[in-house]
Design a protein around this nucleic acid. Structure first.
Length: 279
DNA sequence: ATCATCCCCTGATGGC
DNA sequence: TGCCATCAGGGGATGA
């Protein structure tokens, strides 16, 4: 599912929808749990309540209501929202949570694999966002030196480090490969072998890739779509992800793939040759 | 502490 | 056609 760009684009589309109609009439759950039990009792407390904000931290979202009720949610691997102009009574497979608005429009949360969740216990936002979460990629306090200091004792691969949400949040399996290709760093390079200069390049590429992906509506690989039912187009800008066996756009070398820490990794063996040296 | 592995779940795809 | 294995944007638990 969704990495930071897709979550941010989802946030923006929900915000846009709520700017036109912010009052929830009713929430319907078509099953009692996703990854965790759905907060069915808390959903009852937002009848006729107004959405006041939708915020993102890492890949988590928070929906806040005028009566202070808050919902923390995550899209997991396959979660997405769909907007319906008129009230449906017949639903699609894997439509799990329906936000029925007072004008009869609907926001429907669909999630085939059910790795997503909604939470509403007190402190749930602080719990998921303050513990174990690293820097937002666009945080001004994050710079090459800070990044270097966080990874220069680490033995694990830079690919695993980029996906580690305790360091920098938002980069998942697709964007990790894309960032390293653009930074010309081999994905197996251990954290401790990445120079300060390389940290700078990687950070720059994280920001460039995520920014461009957000501007392009995210990457729609399988089923991602925004809450206003749009699809992303950034998948067309992928340089290595999903391109095993194809020619590198720069040097025509065949793109390679392998598993690192259980996830597919893609790279160009010519453009990303350097196992970095310290300093 | 750090790291790799396995698992949650369903669907799509490819080999036989 | 069916059956089985493998894989998929995340992240949490477990054990070495």
């Amino acid at each position: 599912m969704p990495e930071l760009p897709e979550v941010e684009v989802t946030r923006q589309s929900l915000e846009q929808i709520f700017s036109k109609q912010a009052f929830v009439a009713e929430v319907k759950c078509r099953r009692k749990n996703l990854r965790y039990d759905l907060p069915i009792n808390e959903f009852k407390k937002i009848k006729n309540q107004k959405v006041v904000s939708i915020e993102r931290r890492a890949k988590y979202l928070k929906l806040s209501f005028a009566n202070k009720q808050e919902f923390v949610f995550h899209l997991g691997m396959t979660g997405s929202f769909r907007f319906e102009k008129t009230s449906l009574s017949k639903f699609q497979k894997h439509d799990h949570v329906i936000f029925q608005m007072i004008d009869n429009t609907q926001l429907i949360y669909n999630d085939p694999r059910r790795f997503g969740f909604f939470l509403s216990w007190p402190g749930s936002w602080d719990k998921v966002t303050s513990e174990n979460l690293g820097y937002e990629p666009f945080d001004q306090n994050l710079n090459a030196q800070v990044f270097f200091d966080m990874i220069n004792k680490r033995q694990t691969s830079i690919k695993a480090i980029l996906m580690d949400q305790k360091i920098i949040v938002g980069v998942g399996n697709i964007y990790a490969s894309e960032v390293l290709y653009r930074a010309k760093i081999h994905p197996d390079t251990p954290g401790c072998a990445i120079s300060l200069k390389s940290c700078s390049k990687i950070l720059q590429q994280i920001r460039a890739v995520l920014q461009q992906a957000i501007e392009n509506g995210g990457s729609t690989i399988r089923d991602f779509k925004t809450a206003s039912n749009g699809k992303g187009s950034y998948q067309h800008s992928h340089q290595v992800y999903g391109r095993e066996g194809a020619a590198c756009f720069k040097c025509k070398t065949v793109i390679q793939t392998k598993k690192t820490a259980g996830r597919s990794t893609f790279w160009c063996p010519k453009c990303q040759k350097a196992k970095d040296q310290q300093k």
